[in-house]
Design a binder for these strands. Structure first.
Lengths: 346, 346
DNA sequence: GTGAAAGCGCTAACAA
DNA sequence: TTGTTAGCGCTTTCAC
């Protein structure tokens, strides 16, 4: 027979009694707070170990902190996000904080709202929003309630910090690379954006903009050719089909995301075109896909770990100091040239 | 100037006052508990809406439930897990429960312990462990503390429910398929397992076993050829290299996971072998990789959504009824034949 | 430096 | 059916 009721949890009172001190003293030791002598600390620590005591976060949260940080991921499937999460957890490994991931519903504002509310309701000490699609007013509302860091979305706000990668530069890296290989007819597949505020804040828009500017800088303004679909494999497939139907088809396709590039490769294979001999392809994000040998996709690396660890750093600062100022960090991407791009033929 | 302090949260007392009822009444309405007239319910609901009240989960948890379910993922990078998570969140969408994901540290017992403890400390009402690697005693310890469902690990326990896919059958599906295509020298790449209890409980071991048995059933006992590496791309690469070094190399390789198959394809490409003309390759899990056109990997589909939704169902049952019995659900996989397997040549 | 006591927001006995 | 009241486990004044 199993014990029908789980054994009662060890509480701070048990520890206090066992160490022959007050619960206040134990609490102070737990929080490394001022007002406990070294001897007292030692006594309490021993009692904690002996009883196997662990504080109940929910109870702590009622007065103080829960030592919990929520990370909202818009799409667990996107292979770029694990990098960011690693950066976050890595930096938090030595602290008392614990990370929990809120599974976002693939770029759906409603789901985002539900998750962020759930995080706030659970007393999370801070929130990291990764590539949120919600309206800026929503983000500011969240940030007014709980310390917040927004990742992968441009546009400053006084109430939250941001960590982004320079998408304009990233796009330029790709264009420079392709131009360097002799390409001129370089097309771009972007994620279609309608919302006016998002149009400047979302990375996809920035990439398209970076592409446009870089093309102009190379004197290729007339060759600018952008297809608007969505950042999915299907979107890439569809985009490539449209580009292949052009009277003069491009010699290179710059997809706004690796997953889009996958769809492009797929469509090119169906059309009987070989990469990179007939056409060059580049992606963005340098996901696991990209590095995988048989694919070997030229891509832009965003240094996800750094993004994550910077986000945590800012968040902890915000939690600790309740700073009035907001910080924006912009990291620089690098190009990873692989086998899907080559010197233009013919 | 922003308000320096976030506006005080609306509490159950505010709602009670606004609706001119007791806090008990509000609490009952929140929990759909017995003992509130329809009129009272209506009054309270209105007050809740007007004030925009949301209960604080931490405070609820101190006496009752937190309406939070924790899902431990051993490896966010594994593209099979999102399917399971979708199945979980899908079934929970209409309930008051919210899911949070604990990012596991890639099959590390220490990290698993930390995450599960963190979940318990945060008063989660139930826990779903996906493919945990911890010792069975650890799992039973967790299950004794909080309602628990274990996914993707064979072996029954009276204290937790399990949902698994029939890995033995899945492996047999692959072998049958390959034998049907005329293959006889079919090799398998497995994940090396040392721990004696895990050796029977982990899916990888079951797949290897299924392979062995299916080979025997086809009278190919002498052709059984297993390479032990790990379930990673490198593991697959390494395994394939070992197999290619055989005096008589296999005509087909059955990798224990899609990610392993990726490494295999990589190694074969390096060796100048073409798939499936020179050699057939099959994976397991039917991840996004597999379905991707240029790869088009034959694989075994585990119906992740069903696994997830079944796990939640069992967990909610356990939370509600504190049942003394444990349930085991075993789902059946299906084979998805694609272009990496073909009739044996020569 | 230390501890008593109040209270965080909610639920659950128990009275009314 | 309704409301009163006592906690849940912790942190935080505020005395000492």
């Amino acid at each position: 027979m199993e014990p029908p009721t789980p054994p009662r949890r060890v509480t701070i009172v048990d520890v206090a009694r066992h160490a022959r001190v007050s619960t206040t003293a134990v609490s102070k030791v737990l929080r490394n707070a001022y007002g406990a002598s070294p001897e007292m600390r030692a006594k309490v620590r021993r009692a904690i170990d002996e009883l196997g005591y662990r504080p109940l976060a929910a109870a702590r949260g009622l007065r103080g902190q829960t030592y919990t940080i929520g990370v909202m991921l818009p799409d667990i499937r996107n292979p770029f996000f694990p990098e960011i999460v690693d950066g976050i957890t890595g930096r938090l490994a030595d602290t008392d904080y614990q990370v929990f991931l809120g599974p976002g519903g693939c770029n759906d504002e409603q789901t985002e709202a539900r998750i962020t509310e759930a995080m706030i309701d659970r007393g999370m000490d801070g929130i990291i929003l990764i590539a949120p699609v919600s309206a800026r007013s929503r983000l500011e509302h969240i940030a007014a309630t709980v310390p917040t860091v927004v990742v992968g979305r441009h546009g400053h706000s006084p109430v939250y910090d941001t960590v982004t990668d320079d998408d304009v530069t990233g796009a330029a890296l790709v264009v420079d690379h392709l131009v360097g290989l002799g390409h001129r007819r370089i097309a771009h597949i972007e994620h279609h954006e309608t919302d006016p505020t998002r149009i400047v804040e979302m990375p996809n828009a920035q990439r398209a903009d970076g592409y446009r500017r870089a093309m102009q800088a190379h004197g290729l303004a007339d060759e600018i050719d952008i297809v608007s679909t969505v950042y999915t494999q299907q979107g890439g497939h569809e985009g490539a089909r449209q580009l292949l139907a052009r009277p003069q088809r491009p010699t290179a396709i710059f997809a706004g995301a690796d997953i889009v590039a996958m769809g492009v490769l797929d469509a090119l294979a169906e059309a009987g075109l070989s990469v990179p001999d007939d056409i060059s392809v580049a992606g963005y994000d340098n996901t696991t896909f990209a590095s995988f040998g048989p694919i070997s996709l030229t891509s832009v690396d965003q240094a996800g770990r750094e993004i994550g660890s910077n986000a945590v750093r800012l968040l902890l600062e915000r939690i600790a100091e309740r700073q009035k100022t907001s910080v924006q960090i912009k990291l620089s991407p690098t190009l990873v040239a692989r086998r899907t791009t080559a010197r233009v033929s013919g």
